[in-house]
Design a protein around this nucleic acid. Sequence first.
DNA 1: GATGATTTGTACGTATGTATA
DNA 2: ATATACATACGTACAAATCAT
Lengths: 232, 232
Amino acid sequence: MASVIELSAARGSSEPILLSDRIRNALTDEITSGDLPPGTALDEQLLADRFGASRTPVREALRQLAASGLIEARPRRGMIVTRLTTERIMNMFEAMAEIEAMCVRLAAYRMTPLERAHLMGLHAASQAMVASNDVDAYDTLNRALHEGIYHATHNDFLAEQAMATRVRLNAFRRTQLREGGRIVRSREEHDGVISAIAECDGELAARRMRSHILNAANAFSNYISTHAPNTI
Amino acid sequence: MASVIELSAARGSSEPILLSDRIRNALTDEITSGDLPPGTALDEQLLADRFGASRTPVREALRQLAASGLIEARPRRGMIVTRLTTERIMNMFEAMAEIEAMCVRLAAYRMTPLERAHLMGLHAASQAMVASNDVDAYDTLNRALHEGIYHATHNDFLAEQAMATRVRLNAFRRTQLREGGRIVRSREEHDGVISAIAECDGELAARRMRSHILNAANAFSNYISTHAPNTI
DNA sequence: GATGATTTGTACGTATGTATA
DNA sequence: ATATACATACGTACAAATCAT
């Protein structure tokens, strides 16, 4: 549970100055990490007490989260962490698959040699994480790789859209990596994408990326039905 | 300028009950219609007076608009209607082209016969608007056609994403229809998309849709450089 | 560069509407 | 079905920061 101390810790100068922004960021982390599971009620007064603030900045933080879709506002009935149906999660994975495919296609044609080298370096480094089966470290590199691809589209708007969708799927992406052997296949799929990028074949990279994300979606679906059929 | 009367006008029961939502909707309309041009400062007190409310619901409306990207929040310096560079608008058009292409591809494979008939009906009706060069009426039908395609993906999340992006491009889409002869070519391009849908060829429909939106982007670019080179 | 005016950010009180007993 | 409890939605007041002069 995030503490007031953690909130007031000194950060880089680019960090938000506004209380409401800090609260929003803290809540975003807790929701996407699964710390605040779907369906959790978000009481304004309780959150205000927890963060050592008044209800006003908490309200503003909640409003922003509601606009981003992470939490759900039911007028005069409070806010809850968005409870997603399996169908909607699969819809989100499908949309993510298409968005990622579009990004990697554009990126393959537009990235600079430096950007290409950066991506290949990240991919090479991930080998070690697979060998040691370190899910958290692999997830971090995985994230950097995908974000590097967004950036290499040289289309900031598209990159932001992709990031926003990715954040909303965060908790579920991490879940599926736990499925047996998924992490190994995930890297194999990356390998296919990266080699297509190396050959500047955007169409091939896009098809492989789409499959990659849809495979992740399937892994998630399997994981849920095996480990926790009734939690969503 | 929207009045208090307009705000308090009776609406359907599905309309928002919250004051902040009504203010947000009113401002959304004014921004996307170009009534509030980019760069306009949004004074909280002034808006509160205009809408006959206090600053609190106005602030909440502004926060939501900021989250959707329609306005920009500069901490302690107020909000302004997002001022977009030509480059960013083109980036948005490019993203829109890809999203629309993805939607129509999925839609072509998944739509029901009823949905297909609906789309073809809309397209047929638009012929008359082109003949009379009625830009507003054509724009309305155009909108219905594209939204029908989103819906026919049978992926609500994707449809919502597409709609959100579309709203943010609203003012610019309308602008480009004014470019000489664009409305005629727009319908011709629709014709190609619709016939691909009729043949259930999603890939072809996607390529044609992508071209269609990129053509709109070009038309916009031409219109700007011809009519108002320095307004953005 | 300093000072005043304006505007945002925050706090808190009140009332309305929802949910529950 | 009625009443009670409670959380949100809104209004108002104060504080802090920005910008104009």
